[in-house]
Nucleic acid binder design. Structure first.
Lengths: 189, 189, 189, 189
DNA sequence: TATGAATGAGCCTTCATTCAT
DNA sequence: CATGAATGAAGGCTCATTCAT
């Protein structure tokens, strides 16, 4: 991906997420993206090597801007607070970016996912794992294998956000708090 | 006259699940299924009208045999016990049928899902919702909107089972109990 | 074509003409014929070697029973009378056998027509040509190359009959006489 | 950028008519057209939405250029003269475009004909009907239902042209005049 | 850099024919 | 004779990618 024109890349990204949420990943074609982005089919190949790369770049972009970017700034907070901030941010981002969430959801289990993207996904999971390990030491979190705890957080967040995107639910503080309450009860010691 | 062979549908189903878990749904072609099932391409169309129908029938078959079929038999049990039996069975089925789980996971969010299949999915969800409502009346379950509780159970089960399928984890009673414990803490009042 | 069961051959012929007039020759499949004739697909191949042969046999059967069979008996009549009888019979047969006419029409210009069938068609044309030649000698018919006269008779009969089959016109004596009048004026000296 | 080539449609049309006259409509495949036209299979779909559309467009093109286009310019001529001009032009066009005539003939009774094409066909027939009606008022044409007169003109023209195409007859003025003479005698009062 | 016409491998599906029963 | 499940070659069409302009 050449960084020749950032606006164009964004236009392509927006067209891709919108189309995916409208038609589904399986009906997403390069020419439909080009059409939606009001450019020629070949132009896409100036910015991306292939369809696979385009989708992976988009996923990475969304993962970083929607999740990973907010992790570093909260490491000084107490553990439960950290979880709450992450939970709250993840939920807020996802609900206010429903097209993006639908894209991420469809992409995550597709055959397009590259090794590299898969690793990026794990970065976030590792951050969560570290947090959980820390919580176990502080005797706050259930002393249980992470592979039993992580799927709960991950699966709940994804499923909840996706459902809310589909149902077009407006995210209130009450929903954030209640859902976090459920989460926390699940993992707390 | 060659008798219409009932095993053939099963052969097709097995070939389909195996191929999906090997290559992914997007690379699953009718001719690859035929090849894997050691029959001609056209034979598939004797048993199914289309690729879409084949996949939907397979999904329905797996959903019923893996989940729905055990629901009626447990309605006399106390609530928590019912949840445990369902949880335990869902997990057991999924872990011992990893190809099937991967297929179900990929299919569920694909563009192949028919209206009818979607409704069958909702049947199971409704059963869970009824159970939750009953629990709320008994003051055992958190008095919270079902749309906050269901995604937890649904998302956790799917994500956990998928992860275990990928990691080829052997399901022990300890894992079943621990994961159920997590679940129950999440939803209990 | 084995002559094992004449009833069956007729059943097959009827199914074929009906289906062709309902769906068109291009949608006529061997299995649809079998289904309509209430027999198995393979049974058709006991009576006919191939689809091509079936259709050619049917065409020949219709051509003979509807046209050629009545030619020999009228050779003693005066020329104009002969033309009238042929015209009248051709028209009557075709109008009261609209499915058959539609089949013949679609088949005649299809790629199924065999050499042999094509020759049979010419037999009828030759009979007409002989009649025309005779008429020219008697100075009754225009002294003109047959290749200019025959297409008129042939084209008019086919087109008229086909149109009447489509419009479901009831054939009256008046129509027979009027159309013959048109024909005769065209070719008479 | 490669400019969308207007000749390409003509190349496709020529390939299609040639192939149809060589192999018949039923053996006409999109890939055979592409091969004959020396382009890729997919290119056909840049210019036409489907095989059906391609064939209908070609038929319409031939009908308009070969028949309909000359109708408006002759309305000031006396009736018999109009008939002669039409007859003469139709014949000339058809004889010098034998592949096209064979295509039109095969296409006209195929299952590809769209509603729209069918209507275009009727336009020409209506023009002829109007001419006949006018002739009846002038007492020049037989006072007879059009559905008896039109099939003669239509059937004769098609059958004659097709036969001449097959026999590769060279069209002389004598043939035009003689065949018109036959026609006129048929319909004149 | 930008365009979009052109490419062609590959997909789903059909259907004439065969063959085991 | 009769059956109809099984076959597999081919057809229409799609779409990621290339390339001439």
């Amino acid at each position: 991906m050449r960084v020749k024109d950032d606006t164009k890349v964004n236009t392509i990204f927006e067209a891709t997420t919108k189309l995916t949420s409208e038609l589904g990943l399986s009906r997403l074609t390069m020419s439909s993206i080009a059409k939606k982005a009001k450019m020629a089919c070949g132009t896409l190949y100036i910015y991306f090597d292939s369809k696979e790369q385009l989708l992976n770049e988009l996923y990475k972009h969304l993962l970083i801007s929607g999740t990973l970017s907010l992790l570093p700034s909260i490491q000084h907070l107490p553990l439960k607070k950290q979880f709450f901030v992450i939970w709250s941010n993840v939920l807020k981002f996802r609900v206010s970016n429903s097209c993006e969430v639908i894209f991420m959801h469809q992409f995550r289990y597709s055959s397009f996912v590259s090794e590299e993207t898969s690793n990026l996904d794990k970065q976030f999971l590792n951050f969560i794992k570290d947090l959980l390990d820390q919580g176990k030491e502080e005797l706050i979190i259930k002393n249980m294998d992470n592979c039993l705890l992580v799927p709960l957080l991950y699966g709940y967040a994804n499923t909840l956000a996706r459902q809310m995107a589909i149902d077009k639910v407006v995210l209130t503080d009450a929903i954030i708090e209640q859902s976090f309450h459920v989460c926390w009860d699940a993992i707390k010691s």
